[in-house]
Amino acid sequence: MAEVGRGTRVFRGALARLGGALFVLWMVATLTFFAIRLIPGDPAEAILGGPGSQTSPEALAAVRAEYGLDQPVLVQYLAQLARLATGDLGRSYSLNQDVAPLLIGQLGGTLLLAVLALGVAWLLALGLATWSTRGGRVAWSVGSGLEIVAAALPHFWLATALIVLFSVWLGWLPPISTPGVAGLVLPVLTLAVPLAGFLGQIMRESLLTALESPFVLSARARGESERGVRWVHSIRHAALPAISLSGWAFGSLISGAVVVETIFARPGLGRTLLNAVTVRDVPVVVGAVLIVAVGYILMTLLTDLAQRIADPRLRTR
């Protein structure tokens, strides 16, 4: 029963996690590679503009050679992995440029949107959860009702409603996302409100559990004020499960970004992805999927870390 040093254990844990992440990434690449092969039709024709276009056999052969489509599947797969490892995501069929720089250029806007939305959603959820547990049946019912409705709001409808209200009727904010703060308000709200609905439900449950727990009774018995009980003792407990949801929230925000960027005509990863799906620009879709997968994996790693910081009980194990 050799007791392993704590530092070694932490290092080993981190290494295992990193290995797991790389494994998932590799499987994502593999799955995508083989899924793409299910697309009916000749990829060479797709590259040259779809089945309808007039293409000479010579042109097709040239494209096949250029993209390595005449090689055996396994060779193509390995070549693909090798390219991915160097950060080469291939070349777009429709836009005639390299996918990696194209998508990375779009990434910033989407990330900004997602981070802002996550922050706003947290604030909204926390505010609602705190308010609705203040006591009383009415606050409780209103809070829980608002959360359910918010969680059920589809992004596209919420966006439309916000545009009608704030742009068409009130004229306060632009209906199209312009550069600058004003153009960000509606897209961020659209993404944040439904997420806040989900997070609020979780936070309220755990906030209540904390408020009813014996340690809060102990704190009150020491003379702790209501505010102290909430800020010193309960908020962290309420935040823990919501932190653990960050990976999921990231996915939900990216999905939302596809819709929101389209509606508000905002450049970004989501809109690029949707356009690529519509014109069946395979390399762009694959590239976007891989980038999102990397983002998701990073997010889960970060979540792990954040949980360890917020919950010391996890550190000692």
Partner: peptide
């Protein structure tokens, strides 16, 4: 799960 949210659906639509 690394294809979060709509991503899996979009990939599926790309193919079919």
């Amino acid at each position: 799960f690394a294809f979060p949210g709509l991503l899996l659906a979009l990939l599926f639509i790309l193919i079919f």
